Simulated assay, not measured.
Amino acid sequence: MPKAQETVLEIDLKSLEHNYQYLRSKVAHTVKMMAVVKAFAYGSDSVAIASKLEKAGIDHFAVAYTKEGENLRAGGIEKPVLVLHPQSHSLKLLIDNCLTPSLYSKHILTEFIKTAEELNLKDYPVHININTGLNRLGFSPEEIDEVISILRKTSALQLVGIYSHLGASEDPAEKEFTLSQIATFKKASEKILEAFDHNILRHLCNTSGILNYPEAIFDMVRTGIGLYGYGNSVEEDEKLKPIGTLKTIISQIHHIKAGESVGYNRAFIAKKDTTTATLPLGHADGISRIYGKQKTAVLINGKEAPIIGNVCMDMIMVDVTDIDCNEGDQVIIFGKERSAEKFANKAGTISYELITAISQRVKRFIID
Rank of each mutant, 00 (worst) to 15 (best):
S233M: 05
S46V: 04
Q294D: 12
P306K: 08
G138Y: 06
L72H: 09
T66L: 04
L151D: 08
G231Q: 08
C325Y: 05
K342D: 13
T245P: 00
E238F: 01
T278G: 01
I290Y: 00
F61W: 01
I49W: 03
A156S: 15
I333T: 06
H29V: 02
R152A: 14
S169R: 02
L159Y: 05
D197W: 02
S359N: 11
Y22K: 14
A195W: 06
G309W: 04
E236N: 14
K114Q: 15
L121K: 13
N129C: 09
A344Q: 07
F177D: 13
E260T: 01
R136M: 10
A35H: 10
T100M: 14
P101A: 05
C98V: 04
K14N: 15
M220D: 09
Y213V: 09
N345K: 11
K241M: 12
A347G: 10
S25P: 07
L193H: 14
N265P: 00
P80F: 09
K272D: 12
D314G: 01
I192P: 02
V318W: 05
G286N: 13
S44R: 06
V221P: 06
K186C: 02
V318L: 05
V234N: 10
A48Q: 03
E215K: 07
C98M: 10
K3S: 12
M315W: 11
F334C: 09
T274F: 03
R266W: 01
A35V: 08
I253L: 15
G229L: 10
G76K: 08
P125Y: 04
N206C: 09
A39E: 03
V36P: 00
K26Q: 15
F185I: 14
H283G: 01
L179G: 05
K271C: 05
V320G: 07
D145F: 06
I200T: 11
F365P: 00
Q87W: 03
T207I: 11
H29F: 10
G209N: 08
T7H: 08
V47W: 02
T275L: 04
R24M: 10
I243R: 02
K247D: 00
T248C: 05
N206M: 04
A344R: 03
S351G: 07
N135E: 14
K239V: 03
T115C: 14
Q5W: 00
L121F: 04
D12E: 13
A41T: 07
I290P: 01
S46I: 01
T356S: 15
R266Y: 02
A195P: 03
K342H: 12
Y20L: 11
E236M: 14
I300W: 00
